[in-house]
């Protein structure tokens, strides 16, 4: 299956080429992070199809992920 990925702020360099990642069926958010070279500690919030998701959330073909570090500047 394929998922679409956007990494933001300090993580933007981890957005895969074309924003698309191929993943074995049954893959989770954490599997995606590993595949793009991130560990959960690098990441503060992950959204799947615009809804907050936990690391063990299972993904489906065509899901869209938004991945954020902690942003706290004021």
């Amino acid at each position: 299956m394929q998922v679409r990925i956007k990494c933001f702020a300090t993580l933007s360099d981890h957005t895969p080429e074309g924003g698309v990642l191929a993943l074995p069926a049954g893959g989770t958010v954490e599997n995606v992070l590993t595949a793009i070279g991130l560990v959960p500690e690098d990441v503060k919030l992950v959204f799947v199809n615009s809804k907050h998701a936990e690391m063990d959330a299972p993904l489906a073909d065509g899901d869209q992920l938004g991945i954020f570090p902690a942003v706290g500047g004021g």
Binding site: T10, L45, A70
Partner: peptide
């Protein structure tokens, strides 16, 4: 505020 749950997290700023 889920963004700020860990006071020691690295701030992207």
């Amino acid at each position: 505020s889920l963004m700020w749950g860990d006071a020691a997290a690295a701030d992207a700023e």
